[in-house]
């Protein structure tokens, strides 16, 4: 299996194939007959196990937004190649991302600078509160992607640390 979706922090591998009518979802050891069908008006129904229910779906890039059973969910499609690349690099600790949308108040480091774990890298402002962004590990700053006064969305890449040299 090499297709996957992220939902919250969890990642789910799955596969889709054609069925005699509609499709089949292969997930977690089970195969389920599934399909989407348009209904008169502007609605869509999701059919699973032969049961139909209304669903609202919107996509944007790799993000899939689903309103099902009275609540909205955001899923992210993960490209097989990206997942491969991620697995080989294990890069999570090298990227410093924004915990929430906001703007940069000050940047305390520059590319090439050596930092220690916990050191303040950048101060941001969000909801009229200041938040400090600290180094996730010891390392060397590879790049700073935002300057003072610039705004960013949640999960924006603020800074990069140079890749760890393998020991």
């Amino acid at each position: 299996m090499h297709h996957a979706f992220k939902l919250g922090e969890a990642e789910y591998e799955l596969e889709l194939s054609r069925g005699s009518a509609g499709y089949r979802l292969h997930f977690d050891g089970a195969t389920v007959a599934v399909d989407l069908a348009a209904v008169p008006g502007d609605g869509t129904v999701l059919i699973t196990h032969g049961v139909s229910e209304p669903v609202f779906i919107a996509t944007r890039g790799d993000a899939v937004f689903v309103h099902l059973d009275g609540a909205a969910y955001q899923l992210a499609y993960e490209h097989p190649l990206d997942r491969l690349a991620q697995q080989s690099q294990g890069a999570a600790a090298d990227a410093v991302r924004a915990p929430m949308p906001g703007s940069v108040i000050s940047v305390l480091v520059q590319a090439g600078q050596t930092v220690t774990r916990g050191e303040t890298l950048l101060v941001m402002e969000s909801m009229k509160m200041e938040t400090t962004i600290t180094a996730p590990r010891d390392g060397v700053i590879e790049a700073v992607h935002f300057a003072t006064g610039q705004t960013f969305d949640r999960d924006a890449l603020l800074l990069n640390l140079q890749l760890e040299k393998s020991t």
Binding site: F5, V32, L36, T59
Partner: peptide
């Protein structure tokens, strides 16, 4: 619920549909 959400998402993503078709 997870299964239904993944079904809705999988059926809405081009690469997955194409691979199945």
């Amino acid at each position: 619920k997870l299964q239904r959400l993944l079904a809705a998402a999988a059926l809405s993503v081009r690469p997955l549909r194409d691979a199945a078709d």
